[in-house]
């Protein structure tokens, strides 16, 4: 199974854990990733905040590169990148005038057949839960995570076309498949305010505080995310020491992949104590 792959700017920086664990897990499952040649930044929150056209053209360049690579669907692990690429895809498919403008600036002709997929979509709907369960060596028995989807994956549903925007289940199903016992809670898609993480720490602290304390109240051992910004923000702005995992890290634990230490040590909140206490380390 081969996919075109967009790692995103944080792949080797703030989302180091996500990048490495994703690679290791996909390797275990026998999936080939072909990185888009010379990909560029998706533009992120800053670009669409100040310049709509630029925020559509930057992802469009990546779409054009993925299109010409002809590898297959484009997989995007970072929820933020995914949402900006999907937003551009939506405009390319629904607004002819804007499509022509973008095509002119980027220098390509849009091909609607290119699929853009979130990583968890690939796991659940392309690889399949059955295959994943086969690879589980160390079931995450006794681990009670809450699954946190944040904003970018599920909103706006017409654009991301992924799971239910009010009560998404993808991550929960995946966690169950790994043998964990995901806890039901009501803050799955509340915003953590990451866009203001550097400028309004106090505002963000309140939002993160709510999410983290509600996870704790629900009886969770940790929070599972699929977004680089959420993960960093939730770790950085809390003060109760609740571990925040990328879902691929927990897949790595369950698959018992090698060299987990390489990324697990990068967390601001060390998750090893939790894993050890459950005999998972």
């Amino acid at each position: 199974m081969r996919f075109s792959y967009f790692p995103g700017c944080t792949d080797h920086s703030s989302s180091y854990e996500y990048g490495r664990s994703t690679e290791a897990v996909l390797e275990t499952l026998g999936v080939d990733l072909v990185e888009i040649e010379d990909w560029n930044c998706c533009g992120a929150a800053a670009t669409h905040s100040l310049n709509r056209l630029l925020s559509l053209c930057l992802p469009a360049r990546n779409i054009s590169k993925a299109q010409s690579a002809q590898v297959g669907p484009l997989v995007v692990p970072c929820a933020g990148c995914f949402s900006y690429l999907k937003r551009t895809e939506y405009v390319l498919q629904h607004d002819e005038a804007e499509r022509k403008e973008i095509e002119g600036i980027v220098g390509f002709t849009y091909e609607p057949s290119l699929e853009i997929l979130a990583l968890m979509d690939v796991f659940l709907n392309r690889i399949g839960l059955g295959k994943i369960e086969e690879k589980v060596k160390k079931p995450l028995k006794g681990l009670k995570p809450v699954c946190y989807y944040g904003c970018a994956l599920v909103r706006h549903p017409k654009i991301t076309q992924l799971d239910d925007p009010e009560n998404p289940q993808y991550l929960d199903r995946l966690m169950k498949g790994l043998g964990a016992e995901p806890v039901d809670w009501s803050y799955k898609t509340d915003c953590c305010g990451a866009d203001l993480a550097m400028t309004y720490a106090d505002v963000v602290k309140k939002l993160v505080g709510k999410i983290v304390s509600m996870a704790k109240e629900a009886g969770a051992h940790c929070i599972v995310t699929s977004c680089g910004l959420c993960q960093m923000n939730l770790e950085m702005r809390q003060d109760i020491g609740l571990p925040i995992f990328y879902f691929t890290e927990l897949m790595g634990v369950a698959f018992d992949v090698k060299n987990q230490e390489k990324w697990l040590k990068k967390h601001l909140i060390n998750p090893k104590g939790l894993l050890e206490s459950l005999g998972l380390s």
Binding site: C9, Y16, C57, L58, R61, M236, K266
Partner: peptide, 30 residues
Amino acid sequence: KLFLKGKFPLLPSFVKGKGEIKRIFEKCKK
């Protein structure tokens, strides 16, 4: 803390097609 964890690398990673990026920025200039 993030810096010390090595999560904020000192050296930036550049694209090869800087010219393309420059052109996109130019054309999207307001």
